[in-house]
Nucleic acid binder design. Sequence first.
DNA 1: CGCATTTGACCAGCGC
DNA 2: GCGCTGGTCAAATGCG
Length: 475
Amino acid sequence: MVDDGMSPPNLDDKRVKNELVVLQTEIERMHAENERLRSMLSQVTNNYNALQVHMVALMQDQKAENNEEHDQKHSGNNNGVVVPRQFIDLGLAAKAEAEEPSLSSSEGRSGDRSGSPINNGEVGSKELELRKNEKKEYSSGIGREESPDQGSQWGANKVPRLNPTKNVDQTEATMRKARVSVRARSEAPMITDGCQWRKYGQKMAKGNPCPRAYYRCTMAAGCPVRKQVQRCAEDRSILITTYEGNHSHPLPPAAMAMASTTSSAARMLLSGSMPSADGLMNSNFLARTVLPCSSSMATISASAPFPTVTLDLTQNPNPLQFQRPPSQFYVPSPNPPQNLAAAAAATPSSLLPQIFNQALYNQSKFSGLQMSQDMEAAQLPNHHQPSSQQQSQQNSLAETVSAATAAITADPNFTAALAAAITSIIGGAQPQPNSTTNNNANTTAPTTSNSGNITTSNSNSNGNNKLCNSNFPGN
DNA sequence: CGCATTTGACCAGCGC
DNA sequence: GCGCTGGTCAAATGCG
């Protein structure tokens, strides 16, 4: 008991104690280091965000000027709507747009159509057509002056030719091509997303009885936003809605959510810079982030022809049924729809505020520098174990996605909930209204999809194809 | 009559 | 160069 002669143990104890002390100091040092890195990280993030905000503000100013001119020309299309043009947040996209409307409203039109503005030769005659169009459309109250521009926008394939303004064009082109695709189960022929749409075309999908419908936003003249609606061939209960572009006009809150989503998606894709490399890494990060909880799927396809953020809310048990490019990261949701619906039924609306908040919180994670840092953290094997903060951020994001999915699935109208989910995943830029309410401007659109191949024929023969009859009931 | 949808035609990009 | 495909246009049609 008395340890006199027990010197050896004492020595050992000492040594152990020393080691402990060393370890402790080491740990403290690591903590300090961690702390330091964390603060650096947050500083960088803050700077980035500040810059982003600043840039957006500038863009908005610029756009506001352009729109003023534009509005003066076409007496107030945007009147009445309450919401400021918030989701023009998408800095770069906003810029791209800012240039477009002004161009399109008058002289610029020459350049638009077919995206190869400068396809000389044809321009002259086409301009006549365009002007004719303009008149017609303005008279109908839904200005469509954007059509030319949009043509180029949506028709991504045509974009590359866009041109001359080299400084912006790369960015612009990328933005224009960026798409947000939402896959959701819905028996309804359409989903309500808060915007007004006008159908301008429909095509049959190859090997798919369900046609793909094309819509453009009619809430304001010149709005470049378009969407495609298709129903999945394998599972017709799945509705695939793809959005492209950013609204150039104020929107009601419900629509805002979705709108900011597309903007954010574009920005996000852009932040990954060129699709090929960074884009993939980003997707990887996203997938990893979402995976842990995996009650929703987020896919970012950086592969061509345009970068697409896909939010899969179908909880499809067999993701493989959809052919996906190898470069896509697909995160399947294990939860059967029923479960989600049930879970959501209990909470949907209450969840949304959280979702929105979370979205804002997570937002920084998905953009710019912050994103790449997180990405590294996520991808590196743990030798620097991700800080608990990082980990919890990722977890919370996953939870957010999960919650959003549940809420969405339960929400018969989707809309805001849908947007919230996407936004939360890709980092929506706007503070979202906490209401899930939606405006009912809807568009119905039956759709089809997925294989990507579309036949040219339009025979709408089969009854099923009677897609949309959406008359915009609402709004 | 005005407006939205339908649908055949057209255009441009892409691959072979 | 040609054919295929995605996307858009615009006349025709239908509906309120």
